[in-house]
Amino acid sequence: MKIGMITDSLGHLSFSEMLRASAELGLETLEFACGNWSSAPHINLNTMLGSETARREFIAAVGDHGLSISALNCSGNPLYPGAKGEENHRVTAGTIKLASLLGIDRVVMMSGLPGGPGDANPNWIITDWPPECLEIQKYQWEEKLIPYWRDLVAYSNNLGIRKLCLELHGHQAVYNVHTLLKLRDAVGETVGANYDPSHPLWMNADPIAAVRALGSAIYYVHAKDTRVEPVPTAIDGNLDPRPGDRYGERSWNYITLGYGHGETWWRQFCTALKQAGYDDVLSIEHEDMMMSPIEGMRKSVQLLRNVAINLSEPIKQMAAAAPQTP
């Protein structure tokens, strides 16, 4: 397993400062956001699409710091009704094209969420009642979501991209194992999971059980923690729209690795990933509003160094050294 970071985690730093900090932290890989919900602090999508020189210089700068590029990210809502969705789709399609031009094999994103018939805004259906809920959800999936993703999969495959890694996130059509597998069954195995345990944790799911269920459908992993706050949750439950900067009041908060769940839990999580066949990047996403980005990154990297499983080379060496049966 390799330790990496989505560079928005240090989005306050310039490109060169971020690369230097990443090397000093001992990271191996970087994930770059290209727009939509990210301000794309370290990459200009249009410039990179239009200039081979810019692409070469970008790759060289990353490599000069002993780093590699693990993925591009375009998380947004291309199914948002109207012009906003069209712009999100433009960035999404551009990011997939840029991944192809850079020789990167996967793009991290979200499923998007349509509105219901005639809606001006997305509509997240998470209950079967009142009766219109299931009708809205059927419309969203059959008329909007599945047709869009069939086209996006074909577009991606034509560019040689065969891993679209969907983050299971609230206020998205795909937000848990069931909905990810439902979409994957409908549009094919180009769609897989970017498994980020912080989201199922606040939705009261068990990420370790979910990893076992997803198995080979896991294409990427975000390393992010959530702390469920016992007293506010006991009073109001887990559904909490209070802003993140009101972390003293909220039922749950995104938090630096180890401050929601300790090393024992993260060891179990990495073990489950390994058992599911995932031996790849753990991309840290720092969104803890109680801790500075650089301090949060240092603590997160240290925890992952203690728990990540790196057995491939030792196993190969042991196999090579083992006595051969006549």
Rank of each mutant, 00 (worst) to 15 (best):
Leu159Ala: 12
Glu189Pro: 14
Cys165Ser: 12
His169Pro: 05
Asn176Gly: 09
Gly170Arg: 07
Glu189Thr: 14
Glu189His: 11
Leu152Thr: 10
Tyr155Met: 04
His171Gln: 10
Leu166Ile: 15
Glu167Thr: 14
Leu181Thr: 07
Asn157Gly: 03
Leu164Gly: 01
Gln172Arg: 13
Arg150Phe: 00
Arg184Ala: 14
Ile161Gly: 06
Tyr148Ser: 00
Leu183Val: 04
Asn157Lys: 02
His171Trp: 08
Lys182Trp: 02
His169Ser: 05
Asp151Cys: 07
Asn158Ser: 12
Asn176Thr: 06
His169Phe: 10
Tyr155Pro: 00
Ala193Ile: 14
Asn157His: 00
Lys163Ala: 13
Glu167His: 10
Tyr148Phe: 13
Leu166Gln: 04
His169Cys: 02
Ala173Met: 08
Cys165Val: 12
Ser156Cys: 06
Ala186Leu: 11
Val177Ile: 14
Lys182Phe: 02
Arg162Leu: 13
Glu189Lys: 13
Thr179His: 02
Ile161Ala: 06
Gln172Met: 15
Trp149Gln: 05
Val191Gly: 04
Thr179Ile: 03
Thr190Lys: 13
Leu164Gln: 00
Val187Asp: 01
Cys165Asn: 14
Leu166Met: 11
Leu164Met: 04
Tyr155Asp: 01
Val174Ile: 10
Ala173Ile: 08
Tyr195His: 15
Gly188Asn: 06
Leu183Phe: 07
Ile161Thr: 03
Tyr195Arg: 12
Leu180Asp: 02
Val191Cys: 06
Arg150Asn: 05
Leu183Trp: 05
Tyr175Met: 05
Asn157Met: 00
Ala154Leu: 11
Leu164Val: 03
Arg150Val: 05
Lys182Ala: 02
Tyr175Cys: 10
Ser156Leu: 07
Ala186Ile: 11
Val177Trp: 09
Leu168Tyr: 02
Val177Pro: 14
Leu168Asn: 01
Lys163Asp: 12
Ser156Asn: 09
Gln172Thr: 11
Ile161Trp: 09
Leu183Arg: 03
Gln172Gly: 08
Tyr175Asp: 09
Leu152Pro: 01
Trp149Tyr: 13
His178Ala: 12
Gln172His: 13
Leu152Tyr: 02
Gly188Phe: 04
Gly192Arg: 15
Tyr175Gly: 01
Leu183Cys: 03
Leu168Trp: 02
Leu152Arg: 02
Ala173Pro: 00
His169Ile: 06
Leu181Val: 05
Leu168Ile: 06
Ala186Cys: 12
Thr190Pro: 14
Lys182Gln: 05
Glu189Met: 11
Arg162His: 15
Lys182Cys: 01
Thr179Asp: 05
Gly160Asn: 10
Arg184Val: 13
Arg162Met: 13
Leu159Asp: 07
Val174Phe: 01
Cys165Tyr: 09
His171Thr: 07
Gly188Glu: 07
Tyr195Trp: 15
Gly188Pro: 07
Val191Thr: 04
Ala186Ser: 15
Val191Asp: 05
Leu180Phe: 08
Leu181Glu: 06
Tyr155Gln: 03
Gly188Val: 08
Val153Ala: 08
Tyr155Phe: 14
His171Ala: 11
Tyr195Val: 13
